[in-house]
C-alpha cells in the first residue's frame, strides 16, 4: 500500500504548481485551470487523510468541493466569455479597471 505521505507530498506539489501558475501566467483560462489544479490538490489531500484515518468526512468534503468547482466553472467561464467579447483579449493584465 502506498504510504499516506506520498499522497500528501504529491498534493503539496500540485498545489504549489497551481499557485505558481496562478501568479505567473497571464492568460485567464490558464489561471482558471490553475485554480482547478489547486482545488484538486486539496481534494487529493482530503482523500488521503480520509483513507488514512479511516473516516468518511474527507470524502464528503471532496464531493462538496467538486460541486462548488463545477458551479464556479460555470460562473467563471461566463465571466471569461464576457471579458473576451469586450476586450478581444484574454490577458489578465488588461483587466485592471478596479484601481485608482
Amino acid at each position: 500500500m502506498v504510504p499516506t505521505h506520498y499522497y500528501l507530498i504529491l498534493s503539496a506539489i500540485l498545489f504549489g504548481l497551481g499557485v505558481v501558475a496562478f501568479i505567473f501566467r497571464r492568460n485567464i483560462i490558464t489561471i482558471f485551470m490553475s485554480i482547478e489544479l489547486m482545488l484538486n490538490a486539496v481534494n487529493l489531500a482530503f482523500i488521503a487523510f480520509s483513507r488514512a484515518l479511516n473516516k468518511l468526512d474527507g470524502q464528503v468534503f471532496v464531493l462538496f468541493v467538486i460541486v462548488v468547482a463545477a458551479a464556479e466553472a460555470a460562473v467563471g467561464l461566463g465571466i471569461i466569455i464576457v471579458i473576451a467579447r469586450n476586450r478581444q483579449s484574454l490577458n489578465v493584465e488588461r483587466v485592471d479597471l478596479l484601481k485608482l
Binding site: V19, V92, E93, D96, K99
Partner: peptide, 17 residues
C-alpha cells in the same frame, strides 16, 4: 497604502499567498 490596490489580479493573488 492605496497603491496596494493596483487592479492587477495577479498582485492580489501574491498578497493572498
Amino acid at each position: 497604502v492605496r497603491h496596494a490596490q493596483s487592479g492587477n489580479t495577479r498582485s492580489y493573488a501574491v498578497w493572498v499567498v
